[in-house]
Design a protein around this nucleic acid. Structure first.
Length: 347
DNA sequence: ACTTATTTGCCGATTGGG
DNA sequence: CACTCCCAATCGGCAAAT
C-alpha cells in the first residue's frame, strides 16, 4: 500500500491513505433487468479507468484504481463520480459505489446505505473499526445464516465482538480455515486481490421434476438433457471439465452428491452423459422420491491448454463431427433446431 | 521399506443473489 | 415489501494417492 507513494508527482496533494478498491453495483434506472450487452458495455466503460476490473456478473464489478488515481490525478471518489455520470449517460444505468481499502470492505460500504450513491470508507484503522464494530455478524461477507447462528450461540453477535475474540476460539468453533478468515475479516482484513479475468471454476445446472420422480428412466432422460446442455456450454466457452458432479435432491429436502474425475478433461456430451449415468447408477436409488437432479462440470480449464489424446476410434471421430455440426446448427437456428443428438452414442 | 509432506479426489455444507 | 424457495458456485474437511 505504501509502495509507490509517487512523491515525485507534486500535483497529488496530501490525502488520507488511499482507499483504492471500488465495488460498483449497477441498477437499470428503468426497466426490469440489465441486458448482457449493456453489462458488457459498462465493463468496457470501467476499463477506461483501469485495466484492473473484475467482473461480477450479472450487474457488478470490482475495480482497483490505485494505479489510476495517480494517472488521472483524481481521487477514487472523483473517479467513481465520473463513472456514474458516464454509465448514466451512455447506458441509462445508475450505480452504487463503495470505495474502501479492499474488496470486502468495498462491498460492505456499497451495501451500507441507499442505492445510487458513492460512499467512501477511509483506509484507516480507526474508521474501519468504527464501521465494522456494530454491524451484525451476518453483515460480514462470507458469513451467512449458518455461520451467524453458530457465532451467536457463543455470544459473538456483532462484528466487534468477533474481532475481539481470540483466534483460537474462532478456529475451535468454525474450523481452522474458516476461523482464521472470520478473524481477519472482522478486523477489516481481506487479502483478496481484485482479479481481472477471474475465471469460473465450475458450471452446472439442475432439472427439477414437476412431481417427485420415482422412475429411473425419466431421471436418466433428465440427466441426458443436462449433460447435453452442459457440454454445449463448455464447448461454446472453449473450456473442458476435469470432473463431473451429480447432485440428487429428495422430497424431504435432503440431497446426495457423487462426483467423478474424467481420465482426461472433456467437453464432449457423450463422455459427460456416460459419467452422469454412471454416477446415477452408482447411487442405486430404490423407490427414492427424487425432486431434482443436477450436474456440475468442475475443474474447468481452457480447452487449448489440455493435451489432446487422439482418438483412434472412427466412431468417436464421427460423433465429434456430428457434435460440432449440431453445435453450429444450434448457434444458428436455436436450441430447438436439433434434439438430443448424442442419445444415440451413449451406451 | 518406511515416514512424511503435498496434492488430488470426493462429498456434504454453506453462501448469496435472484 | 418481507419472506421463502431456488439454485449456481464455492468452500471445508477428510481420505486416498503421490
Amino acid at each position: 500500500m505504501s509502495a509507490g507513494e509517487g512523491r515525485h508527482l507534486a500535483a497529488v496533494p496530501d490525502r488520507p491513505p488511499a482507499a483504492g478498491v471500488l465495488y460498483v453495483h449497477f441498477h437499470p434506472v428503468a426497466g426490469p433487468a440489465l441486458t448482457e450487452d449493456t453489462y458488457d458495455g459498462l465493463l468496457a466503460l470501467l476499463a477506461e479507468v483501469t485495466p484492473v476490473v473484475q467482473a461480477l456478473p450479472p450487474d457488478a464489478a470490482l475495480l482497483d484504481v490505485r494505479g489510476a488515481v495517480r494517472y488521472f490525478g483524481h481521487d477514487p471518489a472523483e473517479l467513481a463520480a465520473l463513472l456514474r455520470v458516464r454509465a448514466l449517460a451512455r447506458y441509462g444505468a445508475d450505480c452504487t459505489v463503495g470505495i474502501a481499502g479492499n474488496p470486502m470492505l468495498a462491498r460492505m460500504t456499497a451495501h451500507d446505505g441507499p442505492p445510487g450513491s458513492v460512499r467512501t470508507l477511509p483506509d484507516d484503522a480507526q474508521a474501519v473499526a468504527a464501521f465494522l464494530a456494530r454491524k451484525p455478524a451476518a453483515a460480514l461477507y462470507g458469513v451467512g445464516p449458518a455461520t451467524a447462528r453458530t457465532l451467536c450461540a457463543y455470544g459473538l453477535d456483532s462484528v466487534g465482538r468477533i474481532a475481539e475474540a481470540p483466534l483460537s476460539a474462532l478456529q475451535r468453533v468454525l474450523g481452522a480455515a474458516a476461523g482464521r478468515r472470520i478473524h481477519e475479516r472482522a478486523r477489516g482484513i481481506d487479502p483478496t486481490p481484485v482479479t481481472p479475468d477471474a475465471r469460473v471454476r465450475s458450471m452446472g445446472s439442475e432439472h427439477r421434476f414437476g412431481s417427485d420422480e420415482l422412475d429411473p428412466h425419466r431421471r436418466r432422460r433428465a440427466l441426458l438433457a443436462l449433460a447435453d446442455g452442459l457440454g454445449l456450454r463448455l464447448r461454446q466457452s472453449g473450456q473442458v471439465a476435469r470432473g463431473l458432479k451429480l447432485t440428487v435432491r429428495y422430497a424431504d429436502g435432503s440431497s446426495t452428491t457423487r462426483s467423478r474425475t474424467f481420465p482426461e478433461p472433456t467437453a464432449h456430451t457423450p463422455e459427460l452423459t456416460a459419467a452422469a449415468y454412471a454416477l446415477h447408477a452408482a447411487l442405486g436409488l430404490q423407490r427414492a422420491r427424487v425432486r431434482a437432479v443436477a450436474l456440475r462440470a468442475e475443474g474447468l480449464c481452457d480447452a487449448q491448454l489440455v493435451a489432446h489424446q487422439l482418438s483412434f476410434d472412427p466412431e468417436d471421430e464421427k460423433a465429434r463431427r456430428v457434435e460440432a455440426a449440431v453445435d453450429r446448427a444450434r448457434a444458428r437456428f436455436g436450441m430447438a433446431a436439433v434434439g438430443l443428438a448424442s442419445a444415440h452414442h451413449v451406451a
